[in-house]
Design a protein around this nucleic acid. Structure first.
Lengths: 125, 125
DNA sequence: TTAATTTCACTACATTTGTAGTTGATTATT
DNA sequence: AATAATCAACTACAAATGTAGTGAAATTAA
């Protein structure tokens, strides 16, 4: 049920595919070139690993070339990563985490307003 | 200047020493036994790695047994981990991170009040 | 149609991480 | 003192991660 573990390099692949999919390996390599300057084989290795983990699905485009697309939702992966981070660093408690990031960020008045509204909706009923 | 990378297992060691230090390897093993059920050699390996990384310092107690204590502050490590998490998952932006955790938590009225106050203090000047 | 390019399936290999085991020296017990 | 327990230094070893390279098959371009 829970999305598979996704490593840091793999995460870049996922982000690119959540942004736009399906993509072939070589397309993806070009997509990522500006950020990660990876060899195409590196991208292919990561794609294969993500397929094995069930984080991606493969298909074929009209030319018969394999394409890749996410098999798991970004939001669900973000939730899992977030949970694990909160667990590891803040013993699983949301409040100290929120305090930490609130204190270590500078926000605009608009952002503060918005966040306050969301906080109101997080009230334990 | 930035604290060294600390792995998940290593983090447990650090937490125990931030809680209470100095401790010898065998004390620490006992301290951690309830949570991590590690062999003493496992604890020693982690201690050595943390020493090498400069995350811990060693000393000796009255009996000449080596003791360990943090060489880096918890808050500074938390900040580093937090930064890296925020970078990896939220592209470095605090607001979506805060939104995410606010939306995925249920907080008490008291906690909400407190967080709002902190948000006010995070106003970009 | 031969040569060049692309795609895919494997293999490679150093690091990091998790989790110990072994051995020799020291110290504390009987 | 002989024995047992503890420590510290090394060694071990598999899985995960980062980052490719090789070689064969298929497709495209000259």
């Amino acid at each position: 049920m829970s999305p598979p573990d996704i490593s840091e390099s793999e995460w870049s692949i996922m982000e690119a595919l959540w942004e736009s999919s399906p993509q072939t390996a070589s397309e993806l390599t070009k997509t990522l070139r500006p950020t990660m300057n990876w060899a195409e084989n590196t991208v292919r290795t990561l794609l294969t690993r993500l397929l094995d983990k069930g984080a991606l699905k493969a298909d074929e485009n009209a030319l018969g070339t394999r394409t890749y697309l996410p098999a798991v939702k970004r939001e669900s992966c973000v939730r899992a990563e977030g949970e694990s981070f909160m667990q590891r660093i803040f013993g699983g408690a949301a409040k100290p985490l929120l305090v930490h990031f609130a204190q270590n960020s500078k926000l605009t008045a608009e952002e503060v307003r918005e966040l306050k509204k969301i906080l109101d909706q997080s009230l334990k009923s």
